[in-house]
Design a protein around this nucleic acid. Structure first.
Lengths: 218, 218, 218, 218
DNA sequence: TATGAATGAGCATTCATTCAT
DNA sequence: CATGAATGAATGCTCATTCAT
């Protein structure tokens, strides 16, 4: 395998551990020593795989980006734009327990890192930018070219706000209610199809499209 | 005056400085030494007014709560429920520059502190709880008793999401667009009045109802 | 009254508070703020009566010296040398509860302060020097001129050791047992009088000759 | 070797430095920065080997306990109980210079730490408890079963008192005189052997049985 | 590669002391 | 005399980062 792609099991374990701990405790309050312990790796080895703690954050965001893009690609396979957006909304619906406990891993990291100077600050927002752009394209597909940017922004904002507020209240049901509302909102936006093909069941544990937090689930 | 409320100019200066710096840098990354310097007092003096750094965070949240409650009381003076909710939305619209730069002071602190154990973690979410309850009552006034909780949640989530996403993009216009959308949404919800009295002009620098971040503006 | 002798009630209260707190917590671990609070005096006032924290320690030792000298003067009133030494031993016997809890106020302060440079270090040992000299004179009176220094040293050492060890074990009975032993030892040293006038009852709460710690008792 | 006991040269150096400095200056007045400098390691390294400053105190007491127990085991090898107790007394006689200068390392630490709450307070008295118990057994061997506790207490108290008073006077000769007195006292207690084999020569630099303070001597 | 001991700058907190009123 | 707010040096402890092996 390519040296680049090998990515050694250790590096992966470190990334998984760092991702989980940082999601749970925040970036600043997560000690590299704990990450190493959690990953079953020596502290010194962390610096073999990463240049610095900031570099780990970058890698985590990259990892999230890859997963996000995979999930979006999967969602893009849906037959219609509404279903595609539904699939994205379902990601947050499915993660509502985790997000109510620790906040959205994307949004909370973004809030914490965006205050930093330099590349890291910009990087942290990348997943939201990718997500926004993708949603925008879906709204375009729905024929709302002029408004697609605002609609996509509304959708992403609502998902992030639901995670933040749901986390503040420690209440996953609040997140579920909001994702249901969003699905209904999108269906209402769409030009009425011949036959209503979808049914809103998000809160009742829809299939898992975006296993972004799989490490947290264990 | 109440001795409790006297609160010495120094204590106020400390609180203003801490509030600003913590909003800009985050709680963990804000040094008490910087807070003291910013407030123009000696480092040791911080501990004359506050028991600990956490105690400062509590005081900041308390201060925000007071301001929020004052702003809500002012908004409650509006003649109709729609106008009351508009006034609340205007708070975020007016602060869009600040929030796009540093995030919503309520939401970002909430994300950072809610992970802590103990009273501080719970305290940080209090403003959102107060805000949600207040909005809920307004929706009740609008005659949407059954849905008021969900509608209020949607509103608060959208405001928080707008701040988070607007901050991630560094774009105040995104926040303005969302607050406009929210105002329109509320007007659409309300039973049509005889004459439409309001016009959405938020993004164009509406009057300032909630000078929550006045110290940050200076 | 002479300005010197007036010594204001505040100064006395401070000294009483400092003496007690320092006895209980040690010199270094006693905060002047606590002393002031305990004395019901403003923190700033402490420096009206004392130049520094060290100065308070000096005053405490002086106060103890005065009390010690008064007690020794009282003991000197006893008809015979053995009774005089008994009276001194009774001081420690009577204070055994306090000393078992906090250590001997003279010895523990001596151990803590004697390591300091300057006058304070020397001062702290003064009570023990006065006590030793006085006991020496009593042994001289008993006709043991050649050995009086060693005998007095043994007596003072035993009293200090009893306090230290009794404190380490938290056991006042150990102190009582030792003071009984010392009384017996002294009686055995003395040339047999015509009639034995004394009876060892120390541990059973003998009369209080040296109310050195009266403030601690309350 | 046992991994537990390995204890790295640095940990040992730290312990030696801490033991000496704390003996000389007291626990509270000894700065960890000085301990690190004295040991020739970085300040941060202290926390690699010890959890906290208190933890260092515990380790010091443990170290003293080990040495004490070794010394007692060595003393126990003597042919008769009197010789065994003599060997213990010789420890203090041999250390009289050090103790006159800084106080008995066991007793002074005990006085300073016994006021603390928790395990540390109890721990500090442990050496005295071990010593007392051991001496008690020796007196039992001498056939003074009924009085062994009191006799052992007297012995330990006298040794501690001699150190404290000798330190207050800065006079090693006072300690030597008391240890001689104690040896004579013990010999007087013992049932007269056929031939008196011992002679009190302690003050004249007896062999060193208990090099407890060897690091301080250098 | 891997390790874990070592480093030192950084930070919250304490407290004796000062001083304006 | 009295006060209590203000000061800042001191200190225990943390943790990202380095490096010899």
């Amino acid at each position: 395998m390519a040296r680049e792609a090998a990515a050694s099991a250790n590096r992966d374990r470190l990334l998984v551990a760092a991702s989980r701990l940082i999601h749970q405790r925040g970036f600043t309050r997560t000690r590299l020593a704990d990450v190493a312990t959690e990953a079953g790796v020596a502290l010194g080895s962390v610096y073999f795989y990463f240049r610095s703690k900031d570099d780990i954050a970058v890698a985590i965001v990259d990892r999230r980006l890859e997963r996000l893009e995979r999930a979006l690609a999967r969602a893009a396979g849906r037959p219609d734009p509404v279903g595609r957006l539904d699939a994205v909304i379902a990601i947050w619906a499915d993660d509502r327990e985790i997000d109510a406990t620790y906040g959205c891993p994307i949004g909370s990291l973004c809030y914490e890192l965006s205050r930093r100077r330099g590349a890291l600050g910009a990087k942290a927002g990348e997943p939201l930018r990718v997500l926004l752009r993708w949603c925008e394209q879906r709204f375009d597909e729905m024929g709302m070219a002029g408004e697609s940017h605002g609609l996509a922004a509304h959708l992403v904002m609502a998902l992030q706000g639901a995670s933040l507020v749901g986390h503040a209240f420690g209440d996953p049901a609040m997140i579920a209610a909001e994702t249901d509302r969003l699905k209904a909102w999108i269906r209402a936006l769409a030009p009425p199809p011949r036959r209503r093909a979808h049914r809103a069941r998000t809160a009742a544990g829809g299939n898992r499209h975006f296993p972004d937090n799989e490490e947290e689930t264990s």
